[in-house]
Simulated scan of single mutants.
Amino acid sequence: MKPLKTIIVDDEEFARSSLFFLLQQNCPQIEIIGIAKSVAEAKELLERNHVDVIFLDIAMPGTNGFELIPAATKQQAAVIFTTAYDQYAIRAIKANALDYLLKPIDIDELKEAVDKVEGYLERMAKQGEQDDRMINLGNALAKDAEISKITLPFGQGFKMISVNDILYIEADSNYSVVHLNSEEKITVSKVLREFEELLPSAQFLRVHKSTLVNLDYLVEYNNKNGLQILLKNGVSLNVSRRRATEFFEKIKSLTKP
């Protein structure tokens, strides 16, 4: 594959120079063609050059990195966020961005992110499709709302699903099985903890070490054979003893007038 033409966008000089050095030393497939300290400078680079990858900071004076997303999408450039942003933004990034790196940047995580981008761009070139996850991400943050959709990698592509369509998620070693209300099951290479951190806590609750449930589908709970819950689709799930207190507190909060 040809070198990935890359730009770095960050308002902090140290962050720009350190990332430049890390990429030069550890990612031979990357060709850095420009460095910008603002969204405006980055837009100029995009207008003058073909860009495959953008390493993009979020919090910058005057503007934020998300304002570059429409220009990046137009050129079909992959975006990797480099950020020390707040928890809400991290959740949105996990849901929709190709990848993100928390500052200070870890070398191994950087290599993994670049490898992921390389594979992604190869797939997009073969399929001739444009990825709309950046648009979804920008819209989610602009509305200052909870995440409404997540992207699940499977096979040679990605599947966008609404969080409201998730019945429950069960752990399977280093994988998770996402059960949808359509009866479809999707196995993804994410541990359950990642979904627990990602999905809205008001809607999703860990009821067992291996189960995360969408409480919107809860219709019954009982103590016949240990604490169990029943979902609208007829599936019965166990609630572990150590999570029972949290479960009942959540139920109380949901049933308050």
Rank of each mutant, 00 (worst) to 15 (best):
L56I: 12
A89F: 13
K252R: 13
L46G: 09
N26T: 02
P61I: 00
E184L: 07
D132C: 04
L110C: 00
P3D: 10
A202C: 09
I161P: 11
G226D: 13
A145L: 04
L141V: 13
P200A: 08
R243L: 11
R241V: 14
N214I: 07
L19A: 02
Y85Q: 15
Y120H: 14
P104K: 01
N214T: 07
I69R: 00
E41P: 06
Q87C: 08
P3H: 09
I54C: 06
N49F: 05
K209I: 03
A97I: 01
D108M: 02
V39T: 07
L180F: 08
D131H: 05
Q29P: 04
L110K: 00
L167Y: 04
S176R: 00
I169Q: 01
E129L: 15
N238H: 11
K159R: 13
R241E: 14
T73G: 07
L56A: 13
R243V: 05
E31V: 04
K209S: 12
A71N: 11
F66E: 02
L23T: 00
F158K: 13
I229W: 05
E196N: 09
N223L: 12
E220W: 05
S17V: 14
A92T: 12
T73I: 11
E170Y: 04
Y221V: 05
K185G: 09
E44Q: 10
K43C: 10
E196P: 11
L212E: 05
S182G: 09
K94M: 12
V51G: 08
N64L: 07
L199N: 08
K159P: 08
P257L: 09
L237C: 15
E12A: 11
L205E: 08
I35S: 08
